[in-house]
Design a binder for these strands. Structure first.
Lengths: 112, 112
DNA sequence: GCATTGGTTAAGCACACACCTAACTATCGC
DNA sequence: GCGATAGTTAGGTGTGTGCTTAACCAATGC
């Protein structure tokens, strides 16, 4: 399984995104991440595992609590992929625009 | 199911991403989208369906050929979400940096 | 030490996903 | 019309995902 697969898959679940959003407010223990979610603690832990294997979250056990924190550069690869696509798309659209403009520029409508 | 769920889910599969990448080179018939993929045509069509319900691709039937094209603004919502997260993260990191600098600035190390 | 709190593991279940093959429909070229 | 081409639908299968409950550690607080 590729990195991007894991990343996008991890982000595709609202519970996991909610966890990430909570984590932007700072490091958080597992139980507090799980509390607002409408599911059991083991289920939440499973989501956490997905986030962790995707590299989006790092966690560390301190005493009996596990503190989770966000991995800030994890989204870089995702953003790179998206931007690469967007660049190509807009370039294509620009070329199309240019092309249409050239057609306009010519005195007579070519074909059409 | 939320929009973001559908979007991220659609992007979480390498076959679907490959289709999108092919589509950045311009509108493409189904069979050409499917050709490079290591799967049957119906399977590819299923992936296409996922892309379409996610709003990433639009398609139109011309004669017996179905032409698929990319929906350029579909990634906007994805990018918005990612940027929102990133902004908060870096703001947090900046605040942390500021805080550490203030500690440094004070003559004596406060505690620690 | 003993109950409580925080987390983890195990086992199992329902459903969705990603594929396949086979059969079918609709258009194109002649 | 008729065969070939492009796509679609139907039905079935193995695997993965998302969740549950129950049982099980391991630190803490007293």
């Amino acid at each position: 399984m590729l990195d991007l697969d894991r990343l996008f898959h991890a982000l595709a679940d609202p519970a996991r995104r909610a966890m990430l959003e909570r984590l932007t407010r700072g490091p958080t223990p597992v139980s507090e991440l799980a509390r607002p979610l409408p599911m059991s603690l083991p289920a939440a832990m499973q989501h956490l595992g997905v986030l962790e294997t995707a590299g989006l979250v790092r966690s560390e056990k301190v005493g009996r609590v596990r503190i989770c924190a966000i991995e800030p550069q994890a989204l870089d690869e995702v953003e790179r992929w998206i931007n690469a696509r967007r660049v190509e798309w807009t370039r294509r659209l620009d070329r199309l625009g240019e092309y249409l403009k050239t057609l306009e520029g010519e005195g007579d409508g070519a074909g059409c």
